[in-house]
């Protein structure tokens, strides 16, 4: 019979294993804490560039976007998060009719952030931003219009 299996041995073995555990937590008690204080550190918070928190459509200084209203993104979307309203405008010079974006509606509340729309876009008109503070009180506020 091993010492650990005897009555006295059990007591000693138990005490030893418990003390080892206590030592670990005691050490932690005096080490620096790892907590990041989110709202306090808002100014210095670094979120990874590639993090996907919401879809945005970048606009240049004049307020133009690169969207050509082709609808590839809304087709690539697995669950119909993007819907595009277009209208046909006839170009005066060439006489050709061309689709123009009226409203780019994006439902943040059902987006699954799979990046298929961004991959599908031929003009890189949409991208994901890492701006994560999106919580709202009203469901309707989550349906965003991305174009200006």
């Amino acid at each position: 019979m091993k010492f650990e299996d005897t009555y006295i041995g059990t007591v000693f073995y138990t005490a030893k294993s418990l003390l080892t555990g206590l030592k670990v937590t005691l050490k932690e008690f005096f080490t620096r804490k790892v907590t990041e204080q989110y709202p306090e550190n808002r100014k210095t918070l670094q979120i990874s560039e590639r993090h996907r928190a919401r879809l945005v459509m970048p606009h240049d200084a004049e307020g133009n976007n690169r969207c050509i209203a082709c609808g590839l993104c809304s087709m690539a979307c697995p669950n119909g998060t993007i819907s595009i309203t277009t209208k046909s405008v006839t170009d005066e010079e060439s006489g050709k009719s061309k689709k123009v974006l009226v409203e780019y509606s994006y439902d943040l509340g059902s987006c699954m952030f799979c990046q298929l729309c961004v991959n599908a876009c031929p003009k890189n008109a949409i991208e994901f931003s890492n701006e994560f503070e999106n919580a709202v009180f009203d469901r309707r506020k989550l349906v965003l219009r991305l174009n200006r």
């Binding site: 008690f29 804490k33 204080q37």
Partner: peptide, 11 residues
């Protein structure tokens, strides 16, 4: 408790 768990607790 927070200190043992390497966090801050109520602040």
């Amino acid at each position: 408790c927070a200190s043992f768990q390497c966090r801050l607790g109520p602040t």
